[in-house]
Design a protein around this nucleic acid. Structure first.
Length: 157
DNA sequence: GCCAACGTTGGC
DNA sequence: GCCAACGTTGGC
């Protein structure tokens, strides 16, 4: 059996927060707008249907992991790259040669008690989480099994 | 609102 | 292929 993978995905709640996801049909959405190759590669090459994902609110108050999603589709080209009216339009992408890929994600649960970035920083055993590494801006990150379980505990699970 | 850190672009 | 300039991210 394949090793279970865990992830963290960031979004600015002013743009798209966990409540926006909760209000979508089937509580599912396509994770559009990723325009970073490393983050894209995680979605395109590494994610598997059923992988669990932390939903993180960036540029927000409070900064926190606010819930859990799961990967709900195979990767496919991000439609917004072909849409001239989208702010994510990429003139160098074509249907034949798409640049950007995404997966669908489905809400699993919204934490009653979000896990604050400040509390993660205080937790010694989470000091190697990519999220709090200095200068780390990657919007999609792998999470280790230990980190996953620890954050769940901090959320009261 | 500031700005450090980082990623990308493009001239050479 | 180097690297300066520029744009973006995202914490503070």
């Amino acid at each position: 059996m394949a090793e279970k993978r865990y992830w963290l995905m960031k979004s600015e709640p002013d743009e798209f927060g966990i409540d926006d996801l909760a209000s979508r049909e089937n509580q599912t959405t396509y994770w559009e707008g990723v325009r970073n190759y490393q983050a894209r590669n995680f979605m395109r090459d590494e994610m598997k249907v059923g992988d669990k994902v932390f939903f993180y609110h960036s540029n927000a108050k409070p900064l926190a992991i606010v819930g859990i999603m799961e990967v709900a589709s195979e990767p496919y080209p991000d439609p917004s790259q072909f849409d001239p009216n989208s702010k994510y339009f990429d003139e160098k992408a074509t249907e034949e040669k798409p640049r950007w890929f995404l997966v669908d994600v489905k809400l699993v649960e919204k934490f009653e008690k979000p896990v604050l970035r400040d509390d993660i920083k205080k937790e010694e055993t989470l000091s190697d989480m990519m999220l709090i590494a200095k200068g780390s801006r990657l919007s999609i990150q792998p999470v280790t099994e230990y980190q996953w379980e620890k954050v769940l505990k901090m959320a009261g699970k």
